[in-house]
């Protein structure tokens, strides 16, 4: 661990920010076309973030500021760990559990500062966000556990390397199809897209945790959201869709996966939070358990089908 790792980490952060923000802007156009209108400019998300950073802000105390910094710091650290097409800024630390739990630092920091604003809407939003996390994480973790057992490794770069070189049939989403379906549904929950976005409901709970954020806090939240999206889509991409052998293949697969989830969520309504929990504990959980039993007891899907 020397200075070059930190420099690489910083470059990764900047590149990820530019790529993800552009992709979000393009997806705003995709959503707009779904609704038969033109939509915003492709660089609109950059304008939003810089405008938010430029405004003055109000603060309710030191925990309000500290939580935002802790959230963004934790998420930035997680982004540095993600392997992109085999390149890692800090080699060897891309364990899937480390990444999932460092995501929780981000969520905890945001929850802390939201509740520290003293607004009950924020606390309700955080309670819903935590319940949502319980709902989508259990089926997803069972499928990830199955894959760690099958491939005897819990490192993202190793699992994605094992799927490459065999074309589309090598992807885990094809070899373990039930797991792939559960992964995409859980990805919708993780990203907070409809139908699972009741914790940011603008008209219902006044945008939930972000109710008292203005100015730079709001800018930080937007940057946080971009990085969190990158981490979550990258985890699913590396585990189920084979990562990417080269950087261009990675970015292309990433863009297709993200746009796909965006299109699904563009036509869905919003679940109430207990409906979301009940949904996740019925069909996705059943599929994850069946997939797990099939892999553990018969070994089907660990090798290629054809």
């Amino acid at each position: 661990m020397n200075v070059m790792n930190f420099v690489y980490g910083f470059i990764v952060l900047v590149c990820v920010f530019i790529f993800q923000t552009t992709l979000t802007g393009l997806n705003r156009k995709v959503t707009a076309r779904l609704q038969k209108r033109y939509g915003a400019r492709w660089y609109q998300q950059f304008l939003d973030i810089f405008k938010a950073l430029r405004k003055d802000s109000t603060s309710h105390g030191w925990v309000f500021d500290f939580g935002v910094i802790m959230a963004l710091g934790g998420i930035m650290a997680t982004v540095i760990f993600i392997p992109v097409a085999g390149f890692q800024a800090f080699p060897g630390l891309d364990n899937v559990f480390v990444i999932s739990y460092l995501l929780a630092v981000g969520m905890l920091g945001m929850a802390m500062s939201a509740a520290g604003s003293g607004n009950p809407w924020a606390s309700i939003g955080v309670a819903r966000a935590l319940t949502n996390m319980l709902a989508y994480d259990v089926p997803l973790m069972i499928v990830i556990f199955t894959m760690i057992f099958a491939f005897d490794s819990s490192s993202l770069s190793e699992i994605s390397a094992m799927q490459q070189g065999m074309g589309i049939l090598g992807w885990n989403a094809i070899r373990m199809p039930l797991g792939g379906i559960v992964a995409i549904i859980a990805l919708l929950g993780m990203l907070g897209k409809k139908p699972f976005d009741s914790f940011i409901a603008p008209a219902e709970i006044a945008s939930g945790p972000m109710v008292e954020y203005g100015g730079k806090h709001l800018g930080f939240m937007f940057i946080l959201h971009e990085f969190m999206t990158f981490i979550e889509v990258s985890i699913i991409l590396a585990l189920f869709f084979g990562g990417g052998a080269t950087i261009w293949e990675y970015l292309l697969k990433y863009a297709i996966l993200y746009t796909f989830t965006n299109i699904i969520s563009g036509v869905m309504p919003r679940f109430k939070i207990d409906q979301a929990v009940k949904y996740f504990f019925k069909l996705p959980l059943a599929m994850a358990i069946i997939q797990g039993l099939v892999v553990i007891f018969t070994g089907l899907g660990v090798t290629l089908w054809f």
Binding site: A40, L47, T58, A203, A206, S207, M210, E212, Y213, L218
Partner: peptide, 10 residues
């Protein structure tokens, strides 16, 4: 570039 936001702080 205009859009609605829920609270006056935002």
């Amino acid at each position: 570039g205009m859009g609605p936001m829920a609270t006056p702080r935002q």
